[in-house]
Write a protein that binds this DNA or RNA. Structure first.
Length: 202
DNA sequence: AACTGCCCCAACCGCACAGTG
DNA sequence: GCACTGTGCGGTTGGGGCAGT
């Protein structure tokens, strides 16, 4: 079918993100949001990454409000009951779990909860020990949370947080990679200055 | 101590939807 | 109304780490 790929895969870096790339992306998004669109962002930020990849990295890993680490029993129960109701609508389920992403929930489901769910359905028992979430009191907190989160949307550009860029002293990498990262940092700073100039002009 | 298999999670892929000219 | 572009989403994969043998 006809859709052209979102970026030229031969010209973008792929695979795990380095700390420097994270720092550049975080600092850029905190200042400018997605700067109009995600596709153009890597160019503006001086990252050799696909826009989709940048978006995913920000949404799933870099956002400040994210919680990483173990899911609580309450979260388990909520996921199980929501899955029972709506199936694999991970984004909807994640929106009910403040600080969790759809990728988080999906991974957690695939690695842990799926087995539990299948086991319980095989036994013919209701999946979730928790009462199904109603739109009222019991999950009103979660609902309110997700609601307020929905309203907050992408993080507002916060005051310049240059510190983020500078705490890259724990670079543990080898020659070429370090050189690449330093070049990226410099380029990013340069572009930042240019962007600030443009913004001021407007 | 070495090997193997499993688990977990970050990242990628491709499709569908929404917005815009 | 149509075509094009950007975004969102769900499914899948690859690799590192850990536990068991």
């Amino acid at each position: 079918m006809g859709r052209s790929p979102c970026c030229d895969k031969t010209k973008v870096k792929r695979g795990p993100w380095s700390q420097e790339e994270d720092a550049i992306l975080r600092s850029f998004v905190e200042r400018f949001g997605n700067a109009g669109n995600w596709i153009a962002l890597p160019q503006k930020a001086g990252l050799k990454r696909c826009g989709k990849s940048c978006r995913l990295r920000w949404l799933n890993y870099l956002r400040p409000e994210l919680r990483h680490g173990g899911f609580t029993d309450e979260e388990d129960n909520l996921i199980l009951s929501l899955y029972g109701e709506i199936g694999s609508k991970w984004s909807v389920i994640a929106s009910r779990l403040p600080g969790r992403t759809d990728n988080d929930v999906k991974n957690y489901w695939n690695t842990k909860l799926k087995k539990r769910y299948l086991a319980s359905t095989r036994e013919g028992k209701p999946t979730s020990p928790a009462p199904p979430p109603t739109s009222e009191d019991d999950d009103s907190a979660a609902a309110a949370d997700s609601q307020s989160q929905d309203d907050e949307e992408p993080p507002p550009p916060t005051p310049p947080a240059l510190a983020n860029l500078e705490d890259t002293d724990d670079v543990v990498d080898t020659g070429a990679a370090i050189h690449d990262d330093v070049t990226l940092l410099l380029k990013s700073e340069q572009l930042y200055v240019e962007l600030m100039g443009l913004i001021e002009q407007q």
